[in-house]
């Protein structure tokens, strides 16, 4: 089988299958989580639940340690804080604002948007990769993180890291011909798509649920000024 055929498979039927699995898997997770239900209020809420939700999301957006409230979280593990933040920023810029990725979205959802110049996207990708390396090293040496790290956590890291590193190698024509790296990049994406619903990477969806639930609880108790 030559590279072109492999590339056709990776960009065609395998991607197709992985994407459908991803959609079905995420829906499955969503339904099971929603069906857990919502506790009835046994007493009259002390505050406004909606305000709680708004505040919860606002607080989610304040991620900078110069806000006093965030300082503690930052101080507890600055590496996780900074590298984690940069990783998510990098992911957003590369996956949404990179020209090649925008074309993927365009082909799937039917419309595109302006993208950033390659050098900016490229630097952000490098930042993301370095952040990922910092995170795994931290996981391996931090006494508490070490205890919390099992096979699933390592796989989470690996399956996210592979598309990043292969994508970076691809833009820079490193080690292997472009098409071979394209195959590897697509295959790592396909693996990731299947893995997401099975793993905690699905937090990109559940994040919004947990923020909402926390907001509601805070609102009920009027625990958040």
């Amino acid at each position: 089988m030559n590279t072109q055929t492999m590339l056709e498979l990776a960009r065609g039927p395998i991607f197709y299958g992985a994407l459908l699995f991803f959609i079905a898997g995420m829906l499955y997770r969503l339904v099971t989580v929603i069906s857990l239900g919502w506790n009835k209020d046994l007493a009259k809420p002390r505050g406004d639940k909606a305000t709680g939700v708004v505040k919860s999301f606002l607080r989610g957006g304040i991620i900078f340690p110069f806000f006093p409230r965030e300082k503690a979280a930052y101080a507890r593990n600055p590496i996780v804080y900074i590298a984690g933040g940069l990783f998510h920023l990098s992911l957003f810029i590369v996956v949404i604002l990179g020209a090649a990725h925008m074309l993927v979205w365009k082909s799937l959802i039917g419309f595109g948007w302006p993208t950033l110049p390659l050098p900016i996207v490229d630097w952000m990708a490098a930042v993301g990769i370095i952040a990922m390396v910092a995170l795994i090293v931290n996981r391996m040496v931090h006494p508490v993180m070490k205890l919390l790290t099992g096979v699933a956590e390592v796989l989470n890291w690996l399956f996210v890291f592979l598309p990043m590193i292969t994508g970076y190698m691809m833009t820079h024509h490193m080690f292997l011909p472009y098409e071979n790296l394209f195959v590897l990049h697509m295959m790592s994406i396909n693996v990731l798509l299947v893995w997401i619903p099975l793993s905690r990477i699905s937090h990109f969806m559940f994040y919004f649920f947990s923020r909402t639930i926390h907001g509601v609880e805070w609102g009920k108790r009027n625990a958040m000024p």
Partner: peptide, 11 residues
């Protein structure tokens, strides 16, 4: 005329 990075088939 479809960007090369786009998947071959759209589900």
């Amino acid at each position: 005329y479809q960007g090369q990075s786009a998947p071959l088939e759209r589900p």
